[in-house]
Amino acid sequence: MKIGTTVNGAARQDEIEDRLLLVHYLRDRCGLTATNVGCDTTSCGACTVLLDGESVKSCTVLAAQVDGREVTTVEGLSADGADPHPVQAAFRQEHGLQCGFCTPGMVMASVSLLRDNPKPTEQEVREGLEGNFCRCTGYHNIVRAVLAAADGVSS
């Protein structure tokens, strides 16, 4: 089938297999490989992107379902890659990533969280990221990074 999308601000048209998952559309068709797949059960959040500004797990959305809609991945977060987005900056400053595999999803989930709740408490950050797994950081610095981004400390 044919779909039209806007990915990281750019409009595009693609002919796709009906069963194509959004995550593979982004990775294999759009060449945006930052978004990772970490599980088969919609559990880990590594694939998180924004769909019309809201966080979704792109492994559990069909590319067909984003026809006519707008998708943002971590690659599209900071305008032309110049200045990092405050969440990206905070993740670096607070060492909120190690191997980096969970990171694009974690960053996008955090961006969405802060959009809805610009001044979260630590508990709200933890709950807000419950759908994103990280094996490296123990979440400690991820939580600090999100709180710092909320405070504008790193921006």
């Binding site: 978004t35 990772n36 971590v74 690659e75 890659g81 990092p84 670096r92």
Partner: peptide, 19 residues
Amino acid sequence: VVRVEDPRLLSTGGVYTED
């Protein structure tokens, strides 16, 4: 010292084997 590897991992993502 903050990590030199991060800007890449945070923007275009790492290049893992599947990438």
